[in-house]
Amino acid sequence: MGLVRIASLILFVFLGSAYQDENINNVASCDLNITINGGTIALSKGGAVGSILKYICPFGFYPYPASSRTCWANGKWSLMRNPRRRIIRNAECRAFKCPKPSIEQGTFFPNSVSYVAGDSVNFECDDGYKLLGSEGRTCLINGRWNGTTAVCEDGCE
C-alpha cells in the first residue's frame, strides 16, 4: 500500500511540473517591437522565453548601452543600463571615438572635444625638443589611432 502512495505522489509531482513548464513556455514571450536607432536586431528564439536579442550596428559603430538582451520568464526583456547604472530604454548605434591625444613639451592640432574615424591630428614640439613617433595620426574605424605615439624629447643630449 505504501508503494502505491509513493508512486501516486511521484506521478502527481511530475504531471504538475510538466503542466507548469508548458504554461510558462506557452504564455510568456517578449515584445518583438524592439529596435535600435541606426541598426538592426537578431533574435535567437523568436522572442520566446530565453531568447537572446542581439543588436547589430554598421561597421565603425557599436550598440549602446548593451549589445544583447535576454527574454525573461515574465515576458520582459532584460534591462539596459548606462555606465552610471541608470536604466536606458532605447538602444542606439554610436560611432567609435578615438581618445583625445596628449603630448608633453608640445602641441597638437586641431584640438577638438572628440575625434571620430577619419579625423587627423598633427604634432609639433616646443623649441629645443625633437619629435619622436608619428608627426600625424588618423583616428581609425575601431576607435584607435594609427601610427605611433608622438613624444617630444629634449634635443640637448
Rank of each mutant, 00 (worst) to 15 (best):
M1T: 06
M1C: 02
G2D: 06
R5G: 07
I6A: 13
V13C: 13
V13L: 14
F14Q: 12
F14G: 11
F14E: 12
F14C: 10
L15W: 08
A18Q: 15
E22W: 14
I24Q: 13
V27C: 15
N33T: 11
T35L: 07
N37T: 15
G38C: 08
T40Q: 06
T40G: 04
A42K: 14
A42R: 11
L43S: 08
L43D: 10
S44C: 15
G46E: 12
A48K: 02
L53C: 11
I56H: 10
I56V: 15
I56K: 11
C57K: 12
P58G: 11
G60T: 00
F61Q: 09
P63W: 13
P63K: 12
Y64R: 01
T70V: 04
C71R: 00
C71M: 01
N74R: 06
K76V: 09
L79T: 15
R81Q: 13
N82G: 08
R85I: 11
R89H: 14
N90K: 07
K100Q: 14
S102E: 10
E104P: 06
G106T: 02
N111A: 10
A117D: 05
S120C: 08
E124A: 02
D127A: 13
G128K: 14
K130D: 09
L131S: 08
L132G: 02
G133H: 01
G133K: 01
S134F: 02
E135C: 02
E135W: 02
R137Y: 05
G143C: 00
R144I: 10
R144F: 07
G147E: 04
A150F: 04
E153R: 01
G155H: 13
C156G: 01
C156S: 09
